[in-house]
């Protein structure tokens, strides 16, 4: 019968091969390899304080990377997260002068989401290219951050903000706990809900998704809204640590976030990627930066080092994956 014939054409791979075929698994191995290398290069790398330091540094970029993963899954890109973070940081700083902490954070997050709504609508409804729209929003956001702040940092932030970061729950800092909870929620959303599956379907084949009755317009806009809102959440953690809001905050944050998502195995064409992959990507980025600092590499050389490592990682991955899937 024709059916059995088609089934036999491709024998199922062995469990080990199937495991190795998962990109996240290979990237996890890469992360461990980097960790081992760095622990040889610097005796401080594997100390308890440095590990907490690593986790702490992962929080801000990690939160931004969640929104970025959603956007990239639909086949889009959001270049504006860095400047939206800067702008919403200033909005938060200004709001704190007038209202209590919780509503102030609320205002900043809603503002971030609103900016995302504008980008998402321009991209989805008017068919503009995501790259161009978010590039424009990036310029506008940074400019407004300077104007609203009067070109100086806002430093009279209430000290109670620090509780957001420095409250320990069961020995784990609250910001790290928030990051873990956020990734768990995002993973659950993408895996088990109609919206999450629609986001994958939109990125993989938008026309087919629409023909199957999925609301492709709504779920193409939503990721940009989340991306803007998460940029505001991320900068809230930064400001809580520094007790200062600077218009320059979040500068080039989009590059780190996109790099983390791509290292985590997402396809820039959409439809492929996962929260676990992104989390590993975030750790790889943070570890490399941290390791370079520990080794005393000049900040001017760090960009060269990070860029080289990202490109090498993806190149090796491409060569390995074509070998494995054969």
């Amino acid at each position: 019968m024709a059916n059995t014939e088609t089934l036999n054409r491709r024998a199922p791979a062995s469990p080990l091969k199937q495991f190795a075929q998962r990109l996240e698994v290979r990237m996890l191995l890469l992360a461990l390899l980097i960790a081992v290398c760095l622990s040889f290069l610097s005796p401080f790398f594997l100390t308890k304080s440095n590990i907490f330091n690593l986790l702490d540094q992962s929080v801000v970029i990690g939160i931004v990377a969640v929104g970025m993963t959603f956007v990239i899954l639909t086949g889009g890109i959001d270049l504006s997260v860095g400047s939206v973070a800067g702008l919403t940081g200033i909005i938060l700083g200004l709001s704190l002068q007038h209202v209590p902490i919780v509503p102030a954070i609320g205002i900043a997050v809603v503002a971030g989401g609103f900016i995302g709504l504008i980008s998402g609508t321009l991209i989805t409804v008017f068919g503009l290219a995501p790259f161009v729209v978010t590039l424009g929003v990036m310029a506008i956001g940074r400019s407004l951050a300077y104007i609203f702040s009067g070109q100086t940092a806002i430093s009279n932030i209430p000290e109670a903000m620090q509780n957001i970061v420095y409250t320990d729950v069961l020995g784990i800092p609250s910001n790290v706990l928030f990051l873990i909870a956020l990734y768990a929620a995002a993973w659950g959303y993408l895996t088990y809900t109609k919206g999450g599956r629609t986001i994958y379907a939109v990125g993989s084949n938008k026309e087919a998704a629409r023909a199957a009755g999925l609301n492709t317009t709504f779920y193409s806009i939503l990721p940009y809204v989340l991306s803007g809102a998460f940029a505001a959440v991320a900068i809230t953690f930064s400001i809580s640590q520094l007790l200062s809001a600077d218009p320059l905050m979040g500068n080039q944050m989009e590059l780190d976030a996109i790099a983390a998502v791509v290292i985590g195995g997402a396809s820039l064409y959409g439809g492929r990627g996962s929260m676990i992959g992104t989390l590993i990507g975030v750790f790889i980025m943070v570890m490399i930066r941290n390791g370079l600092n520990l080794m005393g590499v000049s900040p001017f050389w760090q960009g060269t080092a990070i860029g080289t490592i990202i490109i090498l990682a993806l190149l090796v991955e491409r060569l390995v994956s074509s070998r494995i899937s054969r």
Binding site: Y200, A201, N205, A208, G271
Partner: peptide
Amino acid sequence: VAEDRRTQNIVPDL
């Protein structure tokens, strides 16, 4: 069931 299987029906990553 739309005409073009690859572009209008199949979602390859699912």
